[in-house]
Write a protein that binds this DNA or RNA. Sequence first.
DNA 1: GAAACACCTTGATACAGATCAAATAAGATG
DNA 2: CATCTTATTTGATCTGTATCAAGGTGTTTC
Lengths: 250, 250
Amino acid sequence: MPRATQKIQPISQECGDCPIRHRAVCARCESEELNLLEQIKFYRSFEAGQTVVWAGDKMDFVASVVTGIATLSQTMEDGRRQMVGLLLPSDFAGRPGRETSAYDVTAATDLVMCCFRKKPFEDLMLRTPHIGQRLLEMTLDELDAAREWMLLLGRKTAREKIASLICIIARRDASLQLNASDGELRFDLPLTREAMSEYLGLTLETVSRQVSALRKEGLIVTEGKRQIVIPDFDRLLEETGDDSDGGFLV
Amino acid sequence: MPRATQKIQPISQECGDCPIRHRAVCARCESEELNLLEQIKFYRSFEAGQTVVWAGDKMDFVASVVTGIATLSQTMEDGRRQMVGLLLPSDFAGRPGRETSAYDVTAATDLVMCCFRKKPFEDLMLRTPHIGQRLLEMTLDELDAAREWMLLLGRKTAREKIASLICIIARRDASLQLNASDGELRFDLPLTREAMSEYLGLTLETVSRQVSALRKEGLIVTEGKRQIVIPDFDRLLEETGDDSDGGFLV
DNA sequence: GAAACACCTTGATACAGATCAAATAAGATG
DNA sequence: CATCTTATTTGATCTGTATCAAGGTGTTTC
């Protein structure tokens, strides 16, 4: 079951110093809080496919993704599964003030997380308000993403769903690395067909068919199994059903 | 187009004192912040069907629902609509740090909101951290609700969706009023078939058919158009697809 | 390099829910 | 009370996606 898409990068100092840092450097964070965070942080690595925690299990830490991709999923009694969160590097997982995880947290690729023990983290939050403020901002962003995702689940066709997902990943990828070249985007699709189907509320077969359809029409080019090239991003965007510019989920 | 389900109640002091108050009284909030909030708050009323703000329009306030129900919706270019938020009394709308509304905000019933001008509210947030903390809590709750909703949209059958929605409203209603009697629940369904279909990612006709089906099977009883009676809540719960106890959205 | 495995693609068919079209019911209005 | 309007129900049919079933492709293992 191990299947690495990205190699695990050596953990450098730039990572977990401040959970708030990952997305936006915050100047006030430099001094003592940093030291306090240093004391309560630790790293955990997972292989692709491994489960970080099961829904309902005790989760006594909060964490942010350093490298790789994690997913949050819900499962119904009869096994139907829906992904409800996709965590890319710098994203945050875990809820202060809750003992157990509400979702299955799974490593979609090889994964490194920077974890903070919950209790001390909560204490720190009380003492340094701007951590809470930053967390509020991030949570509001996630809520927006969730709502965009709801539109996708409730109203988009299979074809639109696939196009949307590819655009979302491409965008996130492009904003991390700087390979946004001359209109052509090239990146790694880090999800299996099954993971895609769980994200989109489809079956794996429908995902496969629709990806093939987009490929046959030249909207995307697949190289190897996971590498994707988008020759013309705007043309693909038109297939998402979103109006021109909007639609950035997680 | 006006169609009142609940009569507007006279606005009393207990309402908007502190936006944080509505859901959980917070002791620290009593003193000066309360006065500051008093100065920047104002009330707005809407008739059922009226739009509070359109997506993209300027929204220079945040607000919480006093009476009635408001909805947040997204619309695609071709008119497909998906509800992404359902605001009941005490729920909060608007995002600090954003100029425009990301969603259409609509009054599903006659509606009274307690509004706070955004700028002063943000200032207040900076000065009194626990308002931000409370807001973080509420946002995290909403995120959980959104994720439960995503499971509904992505994986549940039409029948399960309807049963879920009725249970959600019944629960919210029961927790507000105290008419949770001897297993029989009676309450007002404050949404049109169309609003329900926008909530559930279905068409209005499918909603109607499934409601009829549940009625014919005796799982619910309808009195008049909007009044609903659930003779046996647990039996209806079994139709939601959720495991025994879970599944409280918005 | 053969076997085993995991993942992906493609085909045939079934069915849940959408769509199109009336008919009915329930308030609102004069 | 009769009429108008809007919301709801119900029917007939169509279609997009699920389901069931092989077959293919690339990777790891020995």
